[in-house]
């Protein structure tokens, strides 16, 4: 059974992560191990922003110039960026947004974020590292769950299933945790509507790579035309009634794209990874991207 089929069709603040997802996670773990083995065969390292050079790729506008290979620029006349590999035994921290707005979507944004968190954590362990998921609990306290080996996977899944999208729990509180400063990778999973790029990029430093997956519901990414709709913000309770004709949809699309472009540009300048994913997307491909 496809994992999507067991998900709910309406907004939900609860996380399911059902048996079908677990089966797909197993297949994903095998795929991640195979990739890790190939990487180990070459250099004994997992991909990522480590100290060992993995190769080069063309420069993209706005990227952090610290990884620019000046020698190649001088010899070839074109800018190339160094691609480094993560060290074996990297420590990844996954910050999970559980604010009320993560309940939006079918499946919900929180469901998809939890799928990604489980997959990234499993891939990190598969490459010899450790992963820790941090998120707000039901009562608003920050809770953690570490994944040191595959044996810890059930407890991680159980931890994720207890997440509830409720209240106004800002990701900023998670960024202030001391554990993030000691990590070699920070993965942020959320809709990013209550944080700014600078808040997340402040975590990026030498030896610590930041990856962000902006999870948005399909109706947030590409809303359909409607004679009338009342948008409701589940965090603040605000509402906004609109008729969604082509003019309004275009204006919204431009505003949303402008906001996402700010994130893309800021992360590109710092050489960090930023991507946008709809909540009904498959988690496997993006999870591999986030751990590379």
């Amino acid at each position: 059974m496809d994992g999507r089929l067991e998900r709910r069709d309406a907004d939900s603040e609860r996380v399911v992560l059902g048996p079908a997802f677990c089966a797909r996670l197993e297949r994903f773990a095998a795929l991640a191990r195979a990739r890790g083995a190939r990487a180990d065969g070459r250099a004994g390292l997992a991909p990522g922003q480590g100290v060992e050079l993995d190769g080069h790729r063309p420069y993209r506008d706005g990227e952090d110039l610290r990884d620019l290979d000046w020698e190649l620029l001088a010899r070839l006349g074109r800018p190339w960026m160094r691609v480094r590999r993560a060290e074996r035994g990297e420590r990844a921290v996954l910050a999970l947004d559980t604010s009320a707005s993560m309940s939006v979507g079918a499946p919900s944004k929180l469901e998809h974020a939890c799928e990604l968190a489980a997959a990234v954590a499993l891939a990190t362990v598969g490459s010899g590292g450790r992963a820790e998921v941090v998120a707000h609990g039901a009562e608003g306290r920050v809770e953690r769950c570490a994944l040191r080996s595959r044996r810890d996977l059930p407890s991680l899944l159980e931890f994720l299933r207890r997440r509830i999208a409720r209240g106004e729990r800002s990701l900023r509180e998670l960024f202030a945790l001391s554990g993030l400063a000691r990590s070699s990778r920070v993965v942020v999973l959320g809709d990013l509507m209550d944080v700014e790029p600078a808040d997340v990029l402040a975590l990026a430093r030498r030896g610590c790579r930041v990856s962000v997956a902006a999870v948005l519901a399909r109706r947030e990414l590409s809303p359909r035309a409607s004679e009338g709709i009342e948008w409701f913000d589940p965090e603040r309770g605000d509402t906004l009634a609109l008729a969604l004709d082509s003019g309004v949809l275009s204006a919204y699309g431009r505003a949303l794209e402008g906001r996402l472009e700010l994130w893309r540009a800021a992360f590109a300048r710092r050489g960090q990874a930023f991507c946008v994913t709809p909540s009904d997307a498959q988690f496997e491909t993006l999870a591999l991207e986030l751990v590379r």
């Binding site: 707005s101 509507m193 109706r219 009338g228 409701f232 913000d233 589940p234 605000d238 906004l240």
Partner: peptide
């Protein structure tokens, strides 16, 4: 008008 939740209000 149906009330629809969104995080992008």
């Amino acid at each position: 008008a149906p009330r629809v939740s969104t995080g992008t209000l």
